[in-house]
Amino acid sequence: MDKTMELEIFRYRPEQDSEPTFQTYEVPFHTEWVILDAVNYIKDEIDGTLSYRWSCRMGVCGSCGMMVNGVPKLTCAAFLKDYTGKIRIEPLEGFPVERDLIFSMDDFIAKLKSVKPWIIRKEGEDKPLEEGEYLQTPRQLVEYQQYTMCINCMLCYAACPVYAHDNTFLGPAAIALGQRYNMDSRDQGRDQRQEAIASHEGIWQCTFVGECSAVCPKDVDPAGAIQRAKVASTIDYFKELLLPWGKKS
């Protein structure tokens, strides 16, 4: 082995450990290796008991998010060569740890569902399949396209101080995905999503720290999505206040 690197990895096996511990492993250094390659090396060659999630290793399945030296990262897209000294790997912050680097995603799945992330059409306004696609211009597509890029990797939740403080907060990805449908020209369901999105646990919890957008590996900009939802909800409020007889559009 030529050059090596040390990884200090969070270990927790609920059946045998009462407290999490850290275990240090020495792995070979290759310039083209990502952190996930090093973790796989440990699993394959040193310690088969290390548990973590991964699959596509090309930054699109969203499985391999971990805290790397305290920062949420997709480990398939974080290169060893960008680090010096011992690298500390922990499960994403803010979630209950199941084991080692694996955390529970139940909370997110429930929240995602609560924003109704699907196309909603008004009663009787569904277009029959025989009549073809809904027309949507490239201009209308770019309006929401950025928010479709979310891979549900949970890095934004791990970075969000609001979620860390109070996990009833709906959170960046779920709100961005709700907003994704709100801004889709084919959708008519914004009113139905407001219940979750404009609630106390929704957008108004967000103080616009912006960390979610900073760590997002896909440039979804959930912080932007949340602020835009706030602006839209505020406009709704004033419309209702000032034009109580009118319908909000």
Partner: peptide, 15 residues
């Protein structure tokens, strides 16, 4: 510096 996140204006398809 964060206002561009809130104010999204498209000219044609270009943001």
């Amino acid at each position: 510096n964060v206002t561009p996140k809130v104010i999204v204006i498209h000219l044609g398809e270009e943001r």
